[in-house]
């Protein structure tokens, strides 16, 4: 499958991280640590994915008592499909052409 031109490496990284546990609600700070993206890079991506219908978000109670609710995110069905498509390796080069340039 051809890779859409507008999916950056950072977006692919976020999609891959979310797709690793598609049913689990993930939090921004944890995503930031896992992807290695700063919050100023991560959140604009999350906002864009959400506005494209690829990400769903909701407020969830904190697992630690006395802490406020957290904004959690996970991929929608469409988002997961895109993430899986992005995870596919690129098609190998045509063997007939591979040796031509050597």
């Amino acid at each position: 499958m051809a890779r859409p031109a507008n999916v950056s490496a950072q977006t692919r990284r976020v999609l891959a991280t979310l797709a690793a546990q598609p049913q689990t609600w993930r939090y921004g700070y944890d995503l930031s640590k896992e992807t290695g993206l700063a919050s100023g890079t991560l959140y604009p991506l999350l906002i864009r994915l959400s506005e494209q219908g690829l990400l769903e978000s909701e407020w969830r109670p904190s697992q630690k008592p006395g802490r406020p609710q957290r904004h959690a995110h996970r991929l929608t069905g469409t988002g997961l499909a895109l993430a899986l498509a992005q995870a596919e390796p690129l098609a190998p080069p045509n063997p007939a052409l591979a040796g031509a340039g050597a």
Binding site: S39, Y43, S57, R67, P68, Q69, H71
Partner: peptide, 25 residues
């Protein structure tokens, strides 16, 4: 959501970095 995350970041330096990202966002 970003402001709420601050309450779950133990390290003050990391919280500051995260908040700077919130402003940038």
């Amino acid at each position: 959501g970003m402001a709420a995350e601050l309450d779950h970041i133990e390290d003050d330096g990391a919280a500051l970095g995260f908040a700077l990202g919130a402003v940038w966002t």
